[in-house]
Amino acid sequence: MSAMDIAAFRHSLVQAAPPEGLSLALQGLWWDARGDWNRAHACAQDQDDAEGAAVHAYLHRKEGDLPNARYWYARAGRPVAAGTLEQEWASLVDALLR
C-alpha cells in the first residue's frame, strides 16, 4: 500500500471494506468509524501487540467499559486517554499510519 495520511484514511470510509494493507489495528479503527464496533473489536483483539492493545483500549472506553479499557491501556503501555473519543481516534489513526 502506498503511504496514506489521515485525510485519505477518512476518505476511504466510503468504501465497502478497508483499504488493502492496513494493520488489524487500523482496520479496527476503520470499522469503528463505520459504526461496526464488533468488527472493530475483533480486529483489535487479533493484533496481539501494543498497537492492537491501544485500539482495544479505545474501543472499550468508547463502549463505556472503563475497567476493561484501563486494563488495555496498561497492556499498551499508555496512560488512560483524557481527551474526547474523536481526538483519541484521530490520534491513534495518525500514529498508526506513520
Results as ranks from 00 to 15, higher is better:
78 R>A: 15
82 A>Q: 15
72 W>G: 09
24 L>F: 06
4 M>Y: 04
90 A>Y: 02
48 D>S: 08
55 V>L: 07
71 Y>K: 13
17 A>H: 07
16 A>I: 14
55 V>F: 02
34 R>K: 14
59 L>F: 01
46 D>K: 07
37 W>L: 12
27 Q>R: 13
91 S>H: 06
81 A>Q: 09
92 L>C: 04
56 H>Q: 12
35 G>W: 03
62 K>Q: 05
4 M>N: 02
78 R>N: 11
11 H>I: 14
20 E>R: 10
66 L>I: 14
85 L>T: 01
64 G>C: 02
35 G>D: 11
20 E>K: 11
68 N>G: 02
58 Y>F: 00
26 L>Q: 08
91 S>Q: 07
91 S>C: 07
3 A>V: 13
78 R>H: 13
58 Y>T: 05
77 G>H: 10
53 A>Q: 09
45 Q>G: 03
48 D>E: 10
92 L>S: 07
53 A>M: 06
67 P>C: 00
65 D>W: 00
47 Q>K: 08
14 V>T: 15
18 P>G: 00
8 A>Y: 02
1 M>F: 09
12 S>R: 11
62 K>I: 01
91 S>L: 08
11 H>R: 15
55 V>A: 04
16 A>D: 14
96 L>R: 10
11 H>V: 15
77 G>F: 02
75 R>S: 14
13 L>R: 13
61 R>E: 05
14 V>W: 00
97 L>R: 03
33 A>L: 12
30 W>V: 12
1 M>K: 11
56 H>R: 08
65 D>I: 00
97 L>C: 09
13 L>Q: 14
65 D>Q: 01
40 A>T: 04
16 A>H: 09
63 E>R: 04
20 E>Y: 03
79 P>D: 12
37 W>T: 02
21 G>D: 06
19 P>C: 13
82 A>T: 15
40 A>G: 09
21 G>R: 04
93 V>T: 10
12 S>D: 11
29 L>G: 00
59 L>M: 04
94 D>I: 01
9 F>P: 13
75 R>N: 12
96 L>I: 10
18 P>R: 05
91 S>N: 04
52 G>W: 05
46 D>R: 11
16 A>V: 15
56 H>A: 09
50 A>V: 04
32 D>S: 01
56 H>V: 06
22 L>G: 07
10 R>S: 12
48 D>M: 10
87 Q>A: 12
62 K>G: 03
12 S>A: 13
51 E>C: 02
86 E>H: 07
96 L>S: 06
37 W>Y: 04
93 V>K: 01
52 G>E: 00
10 R>Q: 14
80 V>P: 06
14 V>M: 11
14 V>F: 01
11 H>S: 15
33 A>D: 05
76 A>R: 05
36 D>K: 03
67 P>I: 02
90 A>I: 08
21 G>C: 03
41 H>Y: 06
62 K>S: 06
56 H>D: 09
50 A>W: 03
